[in-house]
Write a protein that binds this DNA or RNA. Structure first.
Lengths: 212, 212
DNA sequence: CGTCAAATTGAATGGGGTCAAGCGGCGTGG
DNA sequence: CCACGCCGCTTGACCCCATTCAATTTGACG
């Protein structure tokens, strides 16, 4: 077990270029990973919910290529990359397990790419919501989610303006797919939501983590 | 070394759902990896050039979640996943190396996500070209690239209509950034191209592979 | 030279971006 | 406790860029 600690809303867990090379598991709260472009725009690469990993990119070079910011007060668990590599060498099956985790981590950004290749804003938002639903493990129970992020971050993740995200949510609400009130979203018609998202049901292993 | 063989243009190297679990290295030619959505649309997840790996997603579950199609007559080298896992267990440093390769593979889809989060079509096309330039190792020499894929595949990769790709290319040509003739593209002003792409220069290791 | 696929170009439409105003919750301070 | 102000979300109006449909050109190959 790595050592656990907390950070508060708005704080950075690590920044692009940090070379300390650590991997983190989210225990509670939520984070986003972001990349800042040359012209100062902030791209949201992913959201990281309790039970998921982040910082995997540092396994390659030892350096992080994104910044991780807490969306709320958050508890994480820290694992040094070197320790992981060493221990993988010593304990073969740990190494194999790591390979599997990393391999399926490719799926995380696959989801993001799939999102962004959708043409209609409503599809992206629907797919985004459905993805969250699955990752929170709340499928099949008319669940009400609390989004840990604001409209602006959703937009920067989906490649949409924040106003478009808002409009899409109202449209989905008018179609009786969801019930929105601020950051609280109740899913009324999970099936139809998935159909709008047009998800190719892939052989989904347990939702462990996300890219970055 | 895995065994090498060739496939011809249009053939599939593997399909979504295949569980044989193999990883491939491209020796010559080129491939695309695609995902077909519920409504029958084809999303291009990535292109795979000589020297790059593909099929890494099968390391996680043993099953591929995308289809790989040859864009031209192509030579590949095949590695069984089980063999890799076993040998990683036996030879510690191989396992560590694999972790590094996989970790940096996250970068591949990072590039794609960055592409898709750009708002202007020209930026996407410029970044796409620059990415190809780097991956072909032809930076800094007014090089002329031969695109292994058609406009339609470029569009499906960039989230644009094929006509938009065509128009963007002509616009970049009018701005004297490139010279286009069918699938042959000569880069005239590499710096300005990179500036339009607004690439956040990340600590880029050797361009080994791409997602999927 | 004819055929077919790929690429370019044109014109019209529409979805989403942008700018701007209005609304509502929440915390702070009087 | 209430008023104010801030911030995030929503809604409206307008416009632009990319999509779409369609026609034409180019190029490869028989």
């Amino acid at each position: 077990m790595g050592k656990a600690f907390g950070i508060s809303r708005g704080d950075s867990l690590f920044r692009a270029g940090d070379v300390h090379g650590r991997v983190y598991a989210v225990r509670s709260g939520a984070l986003k990973t972001i990349a800042v472009t040359a012209d100062g725009e902030e791209h949201v690469l992913g959201f990281h919910l309790p039970g998921e990993l982040l910082g995997l990119d540092s396994l390659g070079t030892g350096a992080h290529c994104a910044e991780a910011v807490a969306l709320a007060d958050t508890q994480v668990c820290e694992f040094p990359v070197q320790g992981i590599l060493n221990r993988s060498a010593a304990v073969p099956e740990l190494g194999a397990k790591m390979l599997q985790v990393l391999g399926s981590s490719a799926l995380g950004s696959r989801v993001h790419v799939d999102l962004l290749l959708r043409r209609q804003a409503d599809e992206r938002v629907a797919m985004f919501l459905y993805d969250l639903l699955v990752r929170y493990g709340r499928e099949g129970s008319n669940p009400s989610l609390i989004l840990p992020m604001g409209r602006e971050d959703v937009g920067r993740y989906l490649g949409l303006a924040l106003e478009t995200v808002s409009r899409s949510l109202t449209r989905l609400q008018e179609d009786a797919l969801i019930e929105v009130s601020g950051r609280s979203v109740r899913v009324l018609d999970e099936d139809r939501l998935r159909r709008i998202a047009m998800l190719p049901d892939m052989p989904s292993g347990p939702p462990l983590e996300q890219q970055a």
